[in-house]
């Protein structure tokens, strides 16, 4: 690793002040950033560790919206969201492995927007709102391509607000070596429509599968997905699976997600 200073603010206010320095980078749970630093793929002058900020760690229902603090670990979400939003708790409980889930955070995962990460599908599929110190960003506007989000430099995810759907399921086809999604789909049925968010498949990161959403809104059954196809163009092709294979999996995993949501 290149050398850097590390700061441990105790409040969001202190963190924002520390990040005002252009050389500084936020460190969530570090489960992606620390390996990246170790490979010398990043060289921040200063790291601002958010893990000591107690006010960013919570899971609570307010009305019909589940609010999760940006610094909440996957393990805490898996535990505390289970009674309110089981599909999201199930997603959090299948990220990485137990040790990763004890450190990795929802804010860190969303801010990183890895094209194979789980949380982007959960947030986009739930029509979540990402809250920062400065503003509220709809999930549809937040994810902007491979590792790109609407966040400005120094902007921290302080909260994520999830409307709780009538039925939902996250179905993940795992890449066994990395435990990331080879293809995974979050399906959520709300009173006003259905959302289908796909991660792991596209070179542009998480995306909504509009055709499946329309079909499922009319008839929420696995069968309606069967006739739909996704273009292989723009899908990730690598040693774990070709673009054609991933495009095929999108349909298969979406059907399984709908089955799971109905179960």
């Amino acid at each position: 690793m290149y050398a850097f200073d590390i700061k441990r603010p105790r409040s969001v206010e202190e963190a924002v002040a520390a990040l005002a320095d252009g050389e500084a980078q936020a460190l969530g749970g570090g489960q992606t950033l620390i390996p990246t630093l170790r490979q010398r793929l990043a060289d921040p002058g200063t790291l601002v560790s958010l893990s000591g900020i107690a006010e960013l760690k919570y899971v609570r229902m307010e009305g019909d919206v589940l609010r999760i603090g940006g610094g909440t670990t996957h393990a805490q979400v898996a535990r505390e969201a289970a009674a309110h939003y089981p599909a999201l708790a199930s997603l959090a409980g299948r990220i990485g492995d137990p040790a990763v889930r004890n450190r990795g955070t929802i804010g860190g995962s969303l801010a990183n927007n890895d094209p194979s990460a789980c949380y982007p599908a959960g947030a986009l599929g739930s029509n979540a709102t990402v809250v920062t110190g400065a503003r509220e960003i709809a999930a549809d506007d937040f994810f902007q391509g491979l590792f790109e989000t609407a966040l400005d430099e120094g902007e921290i995810v302080t909260e994520v607000r999830f409307p709780v759907p009538e039925a939902a399921r996250y179905e993940k086809f795992i890449q066994p070596a990395s435990r990331f999604a080879l293809v995974a789909v979050f399906v959520a049925r709300f009173a006003g429509g259905v959302r289908v968010a796909v991660t792991g498949a596209s070179e542009s990161g998480v995306f909504r599968w509009a055709e499946a959403e329309a079909a499922l809104a009319a008839d929420f059954t696995p069968e309606v997905v069967r006739g739909l196809t996704v273009q292989a163009e723009g899908m990730i092709g690598d040693l774990h699976g070709s673009a054609e294979y991933r495009a095929h999996l999108v349909g298969v995993i979406t059907r399984r997600a709908v089955e799971g949501a109905l179960a």
Partner: peptide
Amino acid sequence: DTSQCGACDVHVDGLLVKSCAMFAVECD
């Protein structure tokens, strides 16, 4: 060295963590 194998697992405040994916100062 890539935070995948778990050989470095320890408990920090009772929680299982990979000690290769946490900075020492975060454990103060």
